[in-house]
């Protein structure tokens, strides 16, 4: 059985699943994509940092219409993890205005994407309500 793979390279699986960001060594701005330079200060030196797994919902939208192939409804959100903005789906919560609110405390959670032809499972992440 092959090891599961993360859906994106900034998701670290294992005992303590978490996200990692590329942090600008000059100004501290954090990014999740491969960088050519810092968008804030133009610096070119980055270090890898762990992102806290708990945060609060800073913005969300319940997506009811999407391109064919995208399951709807789902909740898209920006989560503030102690100052780091993370784009993610909210999961394990009803996709309704009653169940999701601004400022809601959430934590990182894993979700299965599927298994490819080689039998490798892919794991993605979302954020779920903290109870």
């Amino acid at each position: 059985m092959p090891q599961p793979v993360p859906f994106v390279d900034y998701l670290v699986l294992g005992e303590r699943p978490h996200l990692v960001a590329r942090e600008c060594t000059a100004c501290g701005a954090r990014f999740f994509d491969r960088r050519n330079a810092c968008a804030s200060c133009f610096g070119t030196s980055f270090t890898q940092v762990d992102v806290p797994t708990e945060g609060e919902v800073r913005a969300f939208t319940i997506v009811a219409h999407a391109a064919p192939g995208v399951p709807v409804p789902f909740v898209s959100a920006t989560v503030d993890c102690a100052g780091t903005s993370v784009r993610a789906n909210l999961i394990n919560v009803a996709p309704t205005p009653e169940a999701v609110r601004l400022g809601m405390k959430v934590r990182l959670a894993l979700t299965a994407v599927g298994v490819d032809q080689a039998g490798t499972e892919a794991i993605s992440f979302g954020f779920e309500p903290r109870r």
């Binding site: 793979v5 994106v8 491969r34 997506v63 999407a66 993610a88 789906n89 892919a122």
Partner: peptide, 13 residues
């Protein structure tokens, strides 16, 4: 993002 599939609907919209 080193993603193994399309992000839309999986990592936000």
């Amino acid at each position: 993002f080193g993603a193994i599939g399309p992000l839309d609907g999986r990592i936000g919209t």
